[in-house]
Amino acid sequence: MRRLISLLLLLIVALGIFLCFSGASFGAEGASRAGKLTEDKVNFGRRYASRGLEENKAGNIVASVVVNYRGFDTLGEVTVLFIAAVGLAAILHARREEATPSKAEPASLIVFTGCRFLFPLILLLGAYIFIHGHLTPGGGFQGGAVVASGFLLIYLGCRGRGLRSAGVAVAESLSGLAFLAVALVGLAVGGSFLLNFLPKGSAFALFSGGVIPLIYVAIGFKVGSELGGIIDNLSGEAR
């Protein structure tokens, strides 16, 4: 009986949310907005798509939205991930002493060799994703996650090897500071935080988009080292 009632309530809530979302236009049309603002201001999603390429010269419009138009949010999101990594380390720090050493057996030779063979390739893929973030789909977050999954492979397949925590901390710090430094140079040069102050070049070339590739590389390093640090902390006893 209780289960039936809870299911019924859930259905009602789901129906309500569905009704609300089904009517929403999600930026596809500006029709629902009959305000007194001009047509250009009606829909910023459409404006990004139509003007983003010429304004930032980044082939991947998503990149210019993530790093330029809404770059401040990205800074916040990188910080959230940083907090998650630091907070996890802080809580596990107190528990570290109690942890018993892991008794896991070493991986077989095939797994060991396979991991070592794949590891540089995964790193290369991750680096490619965030260096080409302004040209092709993907970017700092995705590239960083791929890099971190490479380290995960090492932790799983090659026991006894892993990241040095001092190195992770330095990479984390410096990449975060690099992001902020680029943003603050924009403030100093053009009076606006995160301003795209570098020459933008021509779209779809590797050296284009002004500061977007720089920031994406910084995000890639930061996300990679943070996720790597989380994995390192959680699999801590293995070392």
Binding site: D73, G76, T79, V80, I83, G87, A90, I91, A94, R95
Partner: peptide
């Protein structure tokens, strides 16, 4: 409003970690 949410998360997630900081 979305930036409000992002900073709200920064505030909340760091407080979760700090509440549990002692690890007891």
């Amino acid at each position: 409003i979305f930036n409000l949410f992002v900073f709200f998360e920064v505030l909340c997630i760091s407080s979760y970690a700090l509440v549990a900081y002692r690890g007891d």
